[in-house]
Simulated scan of single mutants.
Amino acid sequence: MASTSDHPVKLLGIRDTPLSVDEVFRAVGDDAAGGTALFVGTVRDHDGGAAVTRLAYSAHPSAEAELRRVAEKIAADHSVRALAAVHRVGDLEIGDLAVVVAVSCPHRAEAFAACRKLIDDLKHEVPIWKHQTFLDGTEEWVGAC
């Protein structure tokens, strides 16, 4: 599948609706790419040894702009042919997709490196916060400053 534009950032979003691995994978299709790396983050049933019963993500109004900044930097610093990243907000259930990112590059090593950097920078720099409720009734905010 050929890329639809020369710009490597194809799909970005902060969404309150379910995410699609297929949509993200299709977005990074490029005939010049020899490697595509995809990461899917799911809601797990535990954290730090404690059982998680509920989870919600919220985002600062600047989150999409920060996601774009992160994506543009990854595209500029790596041999990226196409890049896509979507993150979910709102109430999620165990097993739901929380984040899906993908990168296609000329070679697999580049794709792995760029995808790893994309998810790491997204988690560290984009203002999205996780609120977890544990089985014992305690709560925790993750990523909130």
Rank of each mutant, 00 (worst) to 15 (best):
W129K: 06
H87P: 12
I119E: 12
R15K: 05
V52Q: 09
H124E: 14
V80L: 08
L118H: 06
R15S: 04
V52E: 06
A27D: 11
E66I: 12
H107W: 00
S104F: 01
L55E: 04
K117C: 00
A98K: 01
A76L: 14
V142N: 15
R81A: 14
G41V: 07
S62D: 15
H87G: 02
D121C: 09
R108H: 03
V103G: 03
L118P: 05
V99N: 03
Y57V: 02
A32V: 04
K117I: 05
P8A: 00
F134T: 12
G143K: 02
G34T: 13
E72F: 03
K123Y: 10
A84K: 10
T36D: 04
D16H: 06
A32Q: 10
E72P: 10
Y57A: 02
G48E: 06
T4Q: 04
F25L: 15
H131F: 15
V28N: 08
V28G: 05
H107T: 00
K10Y: 03
R68V: 03
E64Q: 10
S104Y: 02
L83H: 14
E66G: 12
H107D: 00
G95Q: 09
V126P: 07
V99S: 06
G137P: 13
P8Y: 03
V52G: 09
K117G: 00
A82S: 14
V142G: 07
H60K: 04
D91S: 11
L67K: 14
R26C: 03
R69F: 06
A32S: 07
F25S: 15
K123A: 06
V43H: 10
D22E: 12
G29W: 03
T36F: 06
G13H: 06
G29S: 15
A65M: 04
R81G: 13
V142M: 14
A109D: 09
T42A: 13
V52P: 08
E139M: 15
Y57E: 01
I74V: 15
